[in-house]
Computed example of a mutant assay.
Amino acid sequence: MTTVVALTALLFGAFIAPPDVVQGNAQRLMYLHVPAAWTAYLGFLIVLLASLGVLFTRFRRSSDVARAAAEVGLALTALTLATGSLWGGLTWGTWWAWDARVLSTVAMGLVYTIYLAARSLADEERGAPGVAVLGVIGFAIVPVVHFSVLWWRTLHQPPTILAPQLNPPMDATMLFTLGAAVLAFTMLALMAIALRTRGLAEGSVDVNQHSALHRGSTSERALQ
Results as ranks from 00 to 15, higher is better:
T91A: 07
W98C: 07
A100F: 00
R101D: 04
E71H: 12
A97L: 15
W95Q: 10
L74P: 10
G89C: 11
T105N: 02
T77W: 10
W95L: 14
A78I: 12
A107K: 05
M108S: 13
E71N: 13
G89Y: 13
T83G: 07
L76K: 00
A70Y: 05
E71S: 14
L79N: 05
E71A: 14
L76P: 05
W87E: 05
A75K: 05
L110W: 08
R101C: 00
L81I: 07
A97H: 15
A75P: 10
G88I: 03
G73C: 04
T105K: 01
T91K: 07
M108A: 15
L74M: 14
A68C: 05
T83F: 09
A75G: 13
T94A: 15
D99V: 00
A82T: 13
T80P: 02
G84T: 01
G73D: 04
V72A: 02
M108G: 11
A97K: 14
T83P: 07
V106M: 14
T80D: 01
L76Y: 05
D99P: 00
M108Y: 11
W87N: 05
G84N: 01
L86I: 15
A75N: 10
L81A: 04
W98R: 07
L81N: 00
V72P: 03
T83W: 08
S85T: 12
T83A: 08
W98P: 02
L103M: 15
R101W: 03
G109L: 07
T83N: 06
A78R: 08
T77P: 02
G88S: 08
V111S: 06
L74Y: 13
T80R: 02
G109Q: 06
A78L: 12
D99Q: 02
L103C: 11
L74W: 13
